[in-house]
């Protein structure tokens, strides 16, 4: 490198490039930049040792601390759970009707109950308790087995026709299949039910004799027996005369498992409170 030009003012070499009279200087970089660069390389080597780094064709180096972002995440979620455990004691002691009086406990139960519901109940009752044909809507104000906190808790705990000793159970007779009433009577009572339980025809007589014991004299239902309300616009197994006739002929019966044993006591209380809130809280 002979003939290297130097800048007059600074004494620094130039690269020999010049644009519009501006010369490009070849200023040396500070040495510590170079050292910083080396330090980064050393850091990287340390990183390879400590953290998962090098892949092979079938595996990868795991690093001495065995770091995994997903394990880290799981740990964090566990910590969150643990920090919430102080609440659990309060849930164990109190019963549902006391819990809902404490606004903090209520909010906590609602959050926990929502998560539990989405995981365990939503497959049948739908997210938010929107229901599906054959699976009762939990978001409305029509309750087959009662909509108070205590009745809901009992339903959740022991189930409906679940086989549990304390299950809720009832059975509607197979009026058609077993020939308990005639086809004409079935048609009459179906018309009477569809027609809003009004009029004085044969339907009313059949209803009073056969149906009123479970569905109530006025058809408003008897929640303590699980007799559905027939006077409103909410139909579990479908609206319309055909659906009513089908149910009279050979009734379908819903089944819900008992959650006692599947969910712990606190979870049952939380999910009951959440379900209760879905219906607006009777």
């Amino acid at each position: 490198m002979a003939n290297v030009e130097k800048d007059a003012l600074t004494g620094t070499e130039t690269t020999g490039h010049s644009w519009d009279g501006i010369q490009e200087l070849n200023t040396p970089l500070p040495k510590w930049w170079l050292y910083t660069f080396y330090a980064c390389i050393i850091w990287a080597v340390g990183y390879w040792v400590v953290y998962p780094a090098w892949p092979s064709l079938s595996d990868y180096t795991k690093g001495v601390i065995g770091y995994s972002s997903r394990a880290e995440h799981a740990k964090e979620m566990e910590a969150v759970k643990a920090s919430r455990s102080e609440w659990l004691g309060k849930f164990e002691e109190a019963n549902v009707s006391d819990i809902v009086k404490d606004s903090q406990l209520l909010n906590y139960a609602m959050a926990g109950g929502r998560a539990l519901f989405n995981e365990n109940c939503a497959p049948c009752h739908g997210a938010g308790g929107q229901g599906a044909p054959g699976f009762p809507v939990l978001a409305d104000d029509d309750w087959l087995w009662g909509g108070t906190l205590e009745s809901i808790e009992q339903s959740v705990r022991f189930g409906i026709r679940s086989g549990h000793e304390e299950e809720r159970v009832n059975e509607m007779p197979k009026y058609g299949v077993d020939g308990l009433i005639t086809k004409e009577e079935m048609a009459a009572v179906a018309d009477y039910v569809i027609g809003g339980l009004q009029g004085d025809g044969a339907g009313k007589t059949v209803f009073a004799e056969q149906c009123a014991a479970c569905h109530g004299e006025d058809g408003h239902g008897l929640p303590e027996m699980g007799g559905p309300n027939l006077s409103d616009g909410i139909w579990l197994f479908g609206a319309g005369k055909d659906a009513v006739l089908a149910q009279l002929n050979s009734p379908k019966h819903g089944v819900m498992p008992a959650w006692q044993g599947r969910l712990d006591d606190v979870s049952i209380k939380q999910v009951s409170i959440y379900v209760h809130s879905l219906g607006g809280g009777q």
């Binding site: 090098w54 892949p55 092979s56 064709l57 079938s58 595996d59 990868y60």
Partner: peptide, 12 residues
């Protein structure tokens, strides 16, 4: 290559 190829061959 170091970053991409092993993803195709690693079972996990």
């Amino acid at each position: 290559l170091v970053q991409i190829v092993p993803l195709y061959t690693m079972e996990q």
